[in-house]
């Protein structure tokens, strides 16, 4: 049988700490510790650190107001429902009604369609962002190693976000051309295209200055490996 190295004894020290070592392993370790300073230092230093970190976690989590968090969880669910209701129902109806009053009789259908496009885009983006955020967090168990899978997922998201950024830019360009260069477009029609271009610009700015840098920071942090 090969002689166990200090590195393998360090593993045994951990196994013993969490009651996973066999009687044989424990006996072997005890013998080793009487002669090896290095492993003794490992054991004592790491136990002190473990105790310190446990004390901190206990202190930092002992006075948490769970009822407050539970209430916020319920509140967040309700608030989401309310927001979705407002966005998908009450909002468009209210805006459509006010536009109806402002519109010339002949332009009412066009205005209504334009508004539907704007409101539909906002709701679609909101729901889409929500689904993506939730999918990202709650995706099912991977077969691979957690960190490797997480790195790959982040790289995928960065690629997707980069594409989305370019698509948003292309959409902005098309909408601006439509809004400014189409000869027989009504003023209201131009406004609708400009508002849609503004929404696409918001997506573009968010990806460029918020979304992508955050993803890149996270991937960079994950890639910082120590051995």
């Amino acid at each position: 049988m090969p002689m166990a190295t200090c590195e393998s004894f360090e593993i045994t020290i951990e196994r013993e700490r969490y009651q996973a070592a066999s009687a044989e392993e424990r006996a072997e370790l005890a013998t080793h510790l009487t002669t090896c300073d290095r492993c003794r230092v490992y054991s004592e230093t790491s136990e002190r650190a473990r105790r310190g970190l446990a004390a901190i976690a206990n202190a930092a989590t002992s006075d948490v107001d769970w009822t407050k968090i539970e209430a916020r969880l319920r509140g967040a669910g309700r608030a989401r429902l309310r927001r979705t209701l407002i966005l998908s129902g009450i909002g468009p109806v209210a805006v459509a009604l006010s536009m109806w009053g402002l519109s010339r009789p002949g332009a009412r259908v066009d205005d209504a369609l334009g508004l539907t496009a704007i409101v539909g885009t906002v709701i679609g983006l909101r729901i889409g962002a929500d689904i993506v955020r939730n999918r990202k967090l709650a995706r099912p168990a991977e077969r691979h190693e957690f960190f490797q899978a997480h790195r790959e997922e982040l790289a995928r998201q960065i690629r997707r976000s980069t594409i989305l950024r370019w698509v948003a830019l292309a959409v902005i360009a098309v909408l601006l051309v439509l809004a400014l260069a189409m000869p027989d477009l009504t003023v209201r029609g131009r406004i609708v295209y400009l508002v849609l271009a503004a929404i696409a610009s918001a997506v573009w700015v968010e990806r460029l200055f918020v979304g992508l840098p955050a993803l890149r920071r996270e991937l960079e942090m994950l890639n910082r490996v120590q051995r």
Partner: peptide, 11 residues
């Protein structure tokens, strides 16, 4: 313990 905890958290 507090001293150990501080150093462990910093490490």
């Amino acid at each position: 313990l507090r001293d150990e905890a501080r150093r462990a958290a910093a490490a």
